[in-house]
Design a protein around this nucleic acid. Structure first.
Length: 503
RNA sequence: GGCGCAUUCGUCUAGGGGUCUAGGACGCCGCCCUCUCACGGCGGAAACCCGGGUUCGAAUCCCGGUUGCGCUACCA
């Protein structure tokens, strides 16, 4: 399917690291675009110079690249100006047009004056009821306005909302949403202090100029969508207005509210794709990548938080998501963030990877622990233990005994598994093992089992004590998988030492 | 407070008038496998927010309420 008219954008603000909810928005935009053969555009909405954070833009691009979300146009591939701060003249033109057409006006009220007004007037709103009491081009004489402009007074341009009109937004996910313009205030569109538009104006102008066909964004924008519709109308662009789709929000795992940065810190899981250090405060936040997640697992997990396929399928590659994604299968209600399920997804992806794929990661971990083992041995160890790992970092905990003899013996396991007869049985086992030439899994198991049966021993007693001797604790793969991998010599050495230490 | 959106197991969700004694997944519990821990298999507990309608029939449609969330900035 190909439709070159489909164009979506992801338009984050560079005010900090990209939140995981933002990542999901980017993902849904990407899936929708690719599904329909359309284009995905990156636009940086840096119209608030006060909140700009250095490094945030690079972070956003790196994070989405890591996850496999690619842009067709935008800064990520060196295209022209997609930073709003670099498009000042463009916005100015439309501000003038709005002013000209009487859809906007100039206001001189200072932030302090507005604040005072809000303090003194309950539920103060700058609108048709109150604008007549304020300092603006509607209440001031033409000359006075000019005088103020000439002497360089700071001003803002506000949209002129006509009261008493019903405004309807057609949302692809929620259907028709209608509000009355009475509840809208005369939003600031433009500020002379930095010659920048605010979000609302810049957003509409850019979406129009970039020929965006679908605006897919978080539900927090739904209340201002009518304002945006009005802006399209006032600018004469209503006919080519994009379709809207407001996505449900990602909520805190417990309690109430939108998922926030603090939740990650408090509950101990990342809410960001990548690690991030705040340039001002030095505060660190952890990311999924550094926590050991596979990007495919994060994408899969995130895709299912608010969207569901037509069947019960749960595992999707990016290509499969693209093939099956559709906006009408996006849920309407917010999704609580379930970190346990996220871990489960990673576990599944890890188990499905081959030892060869996992090898570089594991090799790195082994090196950190000063282990230098033959590749084949490591590959076998990976296959034997990957079912026990959620993250790559878990491998050491589950495979260290393949490479390093136990220094201590777990006390709980010892109490449970080291019986009165164990020293004698282990000494006998030592002799049995010593006599085995072929230390393969099959042969050693056969020999030892034959001995156990001949002596009338209890298999569990023998094997568990044996495990304590070789592993140092009560877990791990089957014993002969371990012994055959570490070899006869090492097995005997560990057994001997354990008998001496534990007896 | 005002406005808007939402409301199915603890969580993510399927469901779009009869097929629902409501399905799947995570988590939880039990059993099996078994030398342990896992993996795997099998099974279990667990939900239609409430009240009115409409209809022969409602989880599904309508209205009201509850509760949750969002917005209400010269932030996005």
């Amino acid at each position: 399917m190909s439709n070159t008219n489909i164009r979506v954008r992801f338009a984050p603000s560079p005010t900090g690291p990209l939140h995981i909810g933002g990542v999901r928005t980017a993902l849904y935009n990407y899936l929708f675009a690719k599904k329909n053969g359309g284009k995905m555009i990156l636009r940086i909405e840096d119209t608030d110079s006060n909140r700009f954070v250095p490094g945030a833009e690079a972070y956003i691009i790196e994070a989405l690249t890591w996850l496999g979300i690619r842009f067709d146009e935008g800064i990520a591939n060196g295209a022209a100006t997609c930073r709003q701060s670099e498009r000042k003249p463009i916005y100015r033109k439309y501000v003038d047009q709005l002013l000209q057409d009487g859809h906007a006006y100039i206001a001189f009220d200072t932030p302090e004056e507005l604040e005072a007004k809000r303090q003194s007037t309950p539920n103060f709103q700058y609108d048709a009821r109150t604008r007549g009491d304020m300092v603006n081009s509607l209440t001031l004489s033409k000359e006075e306005v000019q005088t103020r402009l000439d002497r360089g007074d700071n001003y803002v341009v506000r949209i002129l909302i006509e009261p008493g009109r019903d405004i309807t937004v057609d949302d692809l996910i929620r259907g028709q949403v209608t509000i009355n313009s009475n509840i809208l205030d005369d939003k600031v569109l433009y500020k002379s202090a930095d010659n920048l538009p605010t979000y609302h104006l810049a957003n509409i102008v850019d979406d129009h100029l970039m020929e965006i066909s679908h605006v897919i964004r978080g539900e927090e924008w739904l209340p201002s969508a009518p304002l945006h519709v009005l802006l399209y109308r006032y600018l004469g662009w209503e006919d080519s207005m994009p379709r809207f789709a407001h996505l449900p929000l990602l909520l805190k795992p417990e309690g109430n509210g939108k998922l926030s940065k603090r939740d990650g810190d408090r509950l101990g899981f990342p809410v960001f794709p990548l690690d991030w250090t705040d340039p001002k405060t030095g505060e660190k936040s952890s990311g999924y990548r550094e926590a050991g997640y596979f990007p495919e697992a994060v994408v899969n997990f995130l895709a299912l938080l608010g969207w569901h396929a037509t069947d019960d399928k749960e595992f999707f590659t990016m290509d499969e998501l693209i093939r099956e994604f559709s906006l009408d299968r996006v849920s309407k209600s917010g999704a609580k963030f379930d970190y346990e399920k996220g871990k489960w997804f990673n576990h599944q992806y890890l188990m499905n990877k081959s030892a060869e794929e996992l090898y570089p990661h594991v090799q790195h971990i082994l090196e950190e622990h000063g282990v230098d083992a033959p590749k084949q041995q490591v590959l076998t160890a990976i296959d034997l233990t990957k079912g026990r790992c959620t993250f790559v970092a878990d491998f050491w905990e589950h495979m260290h005994f393949f490479f390093v003899a136990p220094q201590t013996y777990d006390e709980k396991t010892r109490q449970k598994r080291w019986k009165e007869d164990s020293p004698r049985e282990m000494r006998e086992l030592y002799t049995v093992l010593e006599g085995i030439d072929d230390f393969s899994i099959e042969h050693s198991e056969q020999t030892v089992m034959a001995w156990i049966n001949a002596q009338g021993y209890h298999t569990g007693n023998i094997m568990n004590a044996f495990r304590l001797c070789i592993v140092g604790e009560g877990k791990g793969p089957h014993m002969f998988d371990i012994t055959s991998l570490i070899g006869k010599e090492e097995t005997l050495r560990r057994l001997k030492k354990a008998i001496e230490t534990l007896s």
